[in-house]
């Protein structure tokens, strides 16, 4: 893997509006009721000492993706020489091994046509130099996308200068979606 793409999402400005969900839905023409990304609200404390965080979540495009390792047909694979994890519809038998293998709430979803569909980091846009649909629609501009190994990229800069977390790093999957806190 020579290129690691990362998404960096600022929870200080995310408002939980769900535009990222609708933008993904229309861009990628996902089936009714199935979404590749979703928004979580986490509230802690007791009124009136409360804190709330909104997080737009999706596949973490793990550098060490258990879904790829455990896919029996090779349908789950890394796109070119990157960390973008895709599913090859023609090879996917719908056995759901990857669903069990993914440690995240990041659920892969069953497309009505019988294969597992998931977030692609909009590789068809990335290829053209565009941001993923969710990133480019977010009205608060709290989402950022770029190459992690490029020290000058916005995502690298943000991770250098801000506090952040990733989800369930203890799994060893090496997730590439980061949340600024």
């Amino acid at each position: 893997m020579t290129i690691r793409y990362a998404m960096v999402i600022d929870t200080r400005t995310c408002i939980g509006c769900g535009d990222c969900v609708v933008a993904c839905k229309t861009e990628n023409k996902t089936p009714v009721g199935l979404n590749r990304d979703w928004v979580v609200e986490a509230t802690r404390g007791k009124w009136p000492n409360v804190r709330t965080e909104f997080r737009s979540e999706r596949c973490n495009h793990c550098s060490n993706a258990t879904c790829v390792t455990l896919c029996p047909t090779g349908a789950s694979h890394y796109w070119r020489d990157t960390n973008i994890v895709l599913v090859e519809a023609n090879k996917c038998t719908g056995c759901k091994a990857c669903i069990a293998a993914c440690p995240y709430d990041a659920r892969l979803i069953m497309h009505p046509d019988g294969y597992i569909d998931k977030c692609t980091f909009c590789h068809h846009r990335v290829e053209r130099g565009d941001d993923p649909a969710c990133v480019s629609s977010c009205p608060t501009q709290c989402m950022h996308f770029g190459i992690l190994d490029d020290a000058g990229s916005k995502v690298s800069q943000l991770l250098k200068t801000r506090n952040y977390k990733a989800l369930m790093t203890e799994t060893g999957n090496e997730p590439n979606v980061y949340y600024l806190t």
């Binding site: 939980g16 769900g18 009721g33 979703w38 928004v39 979580v40 609200e41 509230t43 802690r44 979803i109």
Partner: peptide, 14 residues
């Protein structure tokens, strides 16, 4: 206390 709510991306209504 911790309260997780999926505020969007509901699949139940499919």
């Amino acid at each position: 206390r911790r309260e997780f709510i999926k505020v969007s991306g509901v699949t139940a209504a499919a």
